Amino acid sequence: MVFTSSSQARRGLAFALLGAVLGACFLVAWKESVRHASPSAAVLVMLSSAAVLNSASALLALARNPGQLTAVSIREMTLLAAILALFTLAGSWASAEAVSRMSGAGLAVLQRCEVIWVALLGALLLGEQVRASFWVGTLIAGGGLVVLQSPELDARAFGPAGVLFGLGSAFCVGSITVLSRRYIRRVQPVVLNALRLWISVGLWFAVERLPGPGMLSAPLLLYAGMAGFFGPFLARVCLLLSARDLPARTTALLSLAIPVITLLLDFALLAELPSTRELEGGSLILLGVALPIAVTLQPTKPRAETQRVS
């Protein structure tokens, strides 16, 4: 179990919140990308663009501090990156299949099931004890997600295939969050992310056929490239950095705010006013997220041993 100070918790929360904002931007671009190509082609472009961008960041980080990598750390990062790449490719494929069968908002709701998986897996692998405030906050935020859904939403939008793919995506993303938390202090986050993405691209070519020239249209390159920029590149780096200071479940909990952030983006970019139902659901989600976060940021009295962060 890793313990952090209040200042470290605030830093971790800032990175996690930024990751949630970028995650909302990713969903908007990802939904558009699968409208212009098959899910497998969209995954390739998204992962490739993210890998190129992250490699540039990794090279800059290593140029500033070339001595931060050792033979041991390279071996550890390569092994961890390979495991994360398997979850990355499987999760990307599952989310692409899901979003081709349902709305982006529907997928966002299903992917939030990762919060429960992260809490359970974190307790098992990391020894992170889950306080009552987390479960209460998750229950409140879950109620907000239910309220947020349109009562006119066609039941077919949550068909069995789409639901299974969406839950599979949540399982993969949650596993990445917990594994990153376990080993993050022994690796360089930006380099790890670059290795993860390139191995994911290599695995794609191992299981898929090369797309023909007609499959890589300009809209696909644009939207899938934007999705790669916002999601696997920027959002994942932010979440890796937050994992240094926050329990995995807290980072995952903040992802519940993604649907609310999406509403705010719609208002800011498209001038679309949220409905009363959306305001009520969004308020419940924010309340549910804020409750355990407030407990995390509460100053604690010094003890003989280290202090625990909820």
Score class of each variant (00 low, 15 high):
L125T: 01
A105M: 15
A16W: 11
S40F: 10
T78Q: 02
L164G: 03
V173D: 01
S200A: 15
A268K: 02
L124R: 07
P189I: 14
P299M: 02
S40P: 02
L179W: 10
R182G: 07
L17N: 05
F267C: 01
L197N: 11
L192C: 12
P274L: 06
L216F: 09
G159W: 13
L84D: 02
F3A: 12
G281W: 07
L263W: 01
A155K: 14
G104W: 05
S48N: 07
K301Q: 14
R196P: 02
L80C: 06
P299L: 07
G106L: 08
A119Q: 11
G23R: 11
A29W: 03
L287F: 13
F3Q: 08
E278G: 14
A157K: 00
M102I: 09
A123H: 13
A141H: 14
L253I: 09
V118K: 08
P160V: 04
D245G: 04
I176A: 07
V190L: 06
L220G: 08
L60F: 14
I74G: 04
R182T: 03
I261T: 05
L195E: 06
V28T: 05
A227C: 07
N65Y: 11
G214S: 10
D245L: 03
L222K: 00
A252M: 03
L18V: 04
I261N: 05
A71W: 09
L53Y: 04
E208M: 14
L89W: 04
L107T: 11
A304T: 12
V21T: 15
A194R: 09
V190A: 15
L273W: 10
G202F: 04
I83D: 02
D245R: 05
S169G: 13
S275G: 13
L124P: 00
L79Y: 03
K31G: 12
Q68R: 15
F165T: 01
P189T: 11
S169V: 01
A294G: 04
A290V: 08
I293L: 15
A132T: 13
M46T: 14
P39G: 00
P292D: 13
L253C: 11
A58S: 15
G231Q: 11
L120C: 11
I199E: 01
A161E: 12
L279C: 12
A81P: 02
R186S: 12
D154L: 08
A96H: 04
A81R: 04
L89A: 01
L167H: 09
L246E: 08
Q307N: 11
L60C: 02
Q129Y: 12
L139F: 14
L126Y: 08
T177K: 02
A51E: 08
Y183I: 02
A294Y: 10
A81Q: 03
